[in-house]
Design a protein around this nucleic acid. Structure first.
Lengths: 350, 350
DNA sequence: TGTTCGTGGTCTTAAAATGTCCCGGGTTAA
DNA sequence: TTAACCCGGGACATTTTAAGACCACGAACA
């Protein structure tokens, strides 16, 4: 595959450029559901006229449909994009990055989506799509999947679409842990139920308030209903989790000053599943809530970590050092940063 | 390998052409050992200047060497040609096939779409698109177009989109013949009206039941309204028709056993416009219904035949022998079969 | 030694690509 | 229901690129 492109590059030196451009346009249209020419031109940093030339071509090839409300991707275009995905990776040089990270941390799969989540909402969406695909790739008919909260996971849930053939009637979605003080849409409970509904699976919720006192924790642990769902959670075969910057999470969860200082003092840089990790990937702080424990995570078959953005690179790196990830889905900006850190490590070794 | 090329054809239709051109030039230079610009330009039917642009590029890519005695291929160029050989086959494969069929049966145009209708619905769609394009290419502002029924023609109707500039306000679509006992969506009447609506043209329908008795036929022929529309049909400048396998059509039309045996006995392999043709392209059976007659077809300016699938190759071939087609739109699998038959004929002649 | 055929340069012209604006129509938010 | 907004498509001036036409000069060859 790669081969043919290399061959063609010799006869068509500008092939790659054109291919990239058209792919990006088509891709952007796909992500936008429906979008107008001017808006798209602005977001892609092209003048209106040249974009128009391209979209006219895409239309004549039947890859997009142009209506009075804007342009949308056609079925054929969608198929083409799917086929093009791996090629695009090598076009944008992301496959090298994927491989580097994969081998360094011994993961089974690394997926890097082009772009930067922090600057482009489309990249976030794309990250969600990639995460959703990764999940479906790992999901068998009767698995239990534990999911965490967060905006990224919410995006994954939104982008989850079932393949036509398989049925997930016997699959279960559960939140990985109890409430951790975030808004409704990005609660693990909400996300678990959304995902389950979207692919026709089942879900169980864990209704535990956040910021439990020790006493409350103990009494809830005795509750039969809660105990049952916690058992289900702890036996999940798949975990899908976001990765957060430690300090940002403390703020988002409105922890009290003392706790924040505490966590910061211990050098926490990353947060996931309610645990805080330092740069070396060691757990330095635990939030008291019910659900998955560290030992469960360690024995879980498939751990899928999803995150994006340059600011999260350090946190993602910490989770990689923690060493429990199997599949990592990140964006290009984070991947580039991680790639740099890997290079620095190698230099230190030499 | 094949795959990527097909993808590129969709996204980079313009580049594929230049790829072909450059390949041919390089190939020619290789065959010529050493050759001058003017000589080469003449042999390739290009002006000197455009050839020069190409050879300059080939030189800058290090694929040829230019000396004062002329141009010769470089080692890198030779290697590239070797690598490109199998790709070139598929790049040109269809073109060669088109040309072979075109010249053998003296058609004005042959279009072969890649793939196989029988295995891929996308190919069927592509066949429809190609058929629609062929029709629009032949259609002038105030033509009358007669269309037959069938799933392929229905696909053509679906894929018909008007070019932005032209108006077909004065064009007419009519069914080629009366009802021939098929389901609503693939009736000639339905297709004629769909096509007309899609490009803003007019249509007239021919409401004649199928399986007419001789008496009924005679009395309908007297009807003024029917007579009028029949007159319009018979004066069509363009005919767009599908081509069917004879036996399959008898089944689809639920003919009675006696008739089927009759048709089979006469060696019918193809069906179109309600006529059945044997392998030599001779009419062996006629369905009694109103509309286009054979003599009309013969004098029609543009006859566009559209069909696809390996199983229909024999039928298509019979229609080619019938000798009234001007434009043929088929899929690759049928084209390959027809190509084989042409080769066999040639061998018999030798 | 003159002729022929080659490349490479240049100038003009034709054509294509591009930047920019505007219009009428449809959608959406108020 | 209305007004604002954004859409696609048309138009057009302008820039950029491709193409055509010639010519100069050098190497090979007869």
């Amino acid at each position: 595959m790669r081969n043919l492109l290399e061959i063609q590059k010799q006869l068509l030196p500008d092939l790659m450029e054109t291919l990239k451009r058209r792919y990006t346009i088509l891709h952007q249209i796909m992500l936008s559901d429906i979008i107008g020419r001017r808006t798209l031109a602005a977001s892609m940093d092209m003048t209106e006229r040249v974009l128009r030339a391209e979209t006219d071509l895409l239309k004549s090839q039947g890859l997009i449909e142009i209506e009075s409300v804007g342009m949308r991707i056609s079925d054929a275009g969608r198929r083409l994009l799917d086929l093009l995905e791996p090629i695009a990776k090598s076009l944008f040089g992301l496959d090298d990055l994927e491989e580097k990270i994969r081998t360094t941390y011994n993961l089974s799969k690394v997926i890097v989506v082009p772009g930067d989540c922090e600057t482009s909402p489309f990249t976030k969406r794309e990250l969600g799509r990639a995460g959703a695909r990764a999940l479906l790739g790992a999901l068998k008919g009767s698995d239990t999947v534990a999911v965490t909260g967060g905006t990224t996971l919410a995006e994954v849930a939104d982008q989850l679409t079932p393949p036509l053939s398989l049925s997930y009637k016997n699959a279960w979605f559960v939140p990985a842990r109890g409430g951790l003080g975030e808004s409704m849409e990005i609660q693990a409970n909400t996300i678990a139920s959304t995902m389950a509904k979207r692919i026709g699976a089942n879900y169980r919720l864990l209704h535990v308030p956040d910021l439990l006192s020790e006493d409350a924790y103990q009494s809830l642990a005795m509750d039969a209903n809660i105990g049952e769902i916690v058992q289900i959670i702890r036996k999940s075969r798949i975990i899908v989790h976001g990765i957060g910057d430690a300090m940002e999470m403390t703020r988002r969860r409105r922890l009290d000053e003392a706790t924040i200082a505490d966590i910061q003092g211990e050098g926490a840089v990353a947060e996931s599943f309610g645990y805080y990790f330092n740069e070396e990937g060691q757990v330095v702080h635990t939030m008291l809530t019910m659900g998955l424990r560290l030992e469960d995570i360690i024995r879980t078959e498939v751990v899928i970590g999803i995150a994006g953005g340059k600011r999260k690179a350090k946190a993602i790196h910490a989770m990689l050092r923690f060493g429990q990830e199997d599949i990592l889905v990140i964006d290009e900006s984070a991947a580039v940063e991680i790639g740099k850190e890997i290079d620095m490590q190698l230099q230190q070794v030499l």
